[in-house]
């Protein structure tokens, strides 16, 4: 464990807590894409298959439970909670996220480190995580008015993967056999998808104006 990875995990944890806090306290999911949340639940479900078979550390197991629990409860809130679901904007959240799942699955079957069920599922979760934010970014472009919590949620989500890139660079130089091109490339693609959001987020923060994304 290194500081970049720990900071990345904490930033990732903060992003889901900000989202849960928003939904739980103001009982609203306005501006949140259910599709992105469903994709994230699928990412964790396919990545943490080793939850009960490979024990790595208490930290690792605990964080996996938190990420699984929070992502599925966020989906539950938006889908079934009688108050929250009313603020879900399904007419705007129209990204066909199934078109993301299939290509990621096919790609995982083609390009993976080892052709086993667990390894293909793990690779699928990496590819899917890289594109999972797209429905959310599309929704932000459409709804234009980004409330603070949603902006912070997306920012933290992007920052966590950027910190992971620093972690991969650190591990590459400190651990002789640590080479994972698939992880690195999908992580880089994921972070690049946030690039324009980061730009507008910092612009709004610097000029102290409300965050607006160009149409």
């Amino acid at each position: 464990m290194n500081i970049f990875r720990f900071a990345g995990d904490m930033t990732h944890l903060a992003s889901v807590l900000v989202l849960l806090l928003k939904i739980h306290t103001i009982k609203s999911c306005a501006g949140i894409s259910l599709k992105t949340q469903e994709l994230y639940a699928l990412v964790f479900a396919t990545r943490y298959l080793d939850l009960f078979t490979d024990y790595i550390s208490l930290y690792n197991t605990l964080m996996k439970l938190i990420f699984l629990g929070s992502s599925f409860s966020i989906v539950w809130y938006i889908r079934y909670h009688k108050i929250v679901r009313r603020s879900y904007d399904k007419d705007q959240d129209t990204f066909r996220h199934y078109f993301l799942v299939l290509p990621c699955l096919l790609l995982a079957l083609l390009i993976n480190e080892k052709f086993t069920f667990r390894e293909v599922m793990w690779t699928f979760s990496l590819y899917l995580e890289a594109v999972a934010i797209l429905p959310q970014l599309v929704l932000l472009q459409r709804t234009r008015n980004i409330d603070n919590l949603t902006g912070q949620y997306v920012f933290l989500l992007g920052a966590y993967r950027a910190l992971y890139i620093l972690n991969w660079i650190y591990r590459y130089f400190t651990e002789p056999h640590y080479v994972h091109w698939i992880t690195w490339i999908s992580g880089l693609v994921q972070t690049l998808l946030y690039a324009d959001f980061f730009y507008y987020y910092f612009q709004s923060w610097k000029n102290n104006v409300k965050l607006e994304l160009p149409a």
């Binding site: 990875r5 995990d9 990732h12 080793d50 490979d54 790595i56 690792n60 964080m63 996996k64 990420f67 480190e113 080892k114 390894e119 793990w122 992971y164 972690n167 640590y178 994972h180 992880t183």
Partner: peptide
């Protein structure tokens, strides 16, 4: 195990 495959990350 997970360590060797590098899947020790979240």
């Amino acid at each position: 195990n997970a360590e060797s495959q590098g899947h020790d990350e979240l």
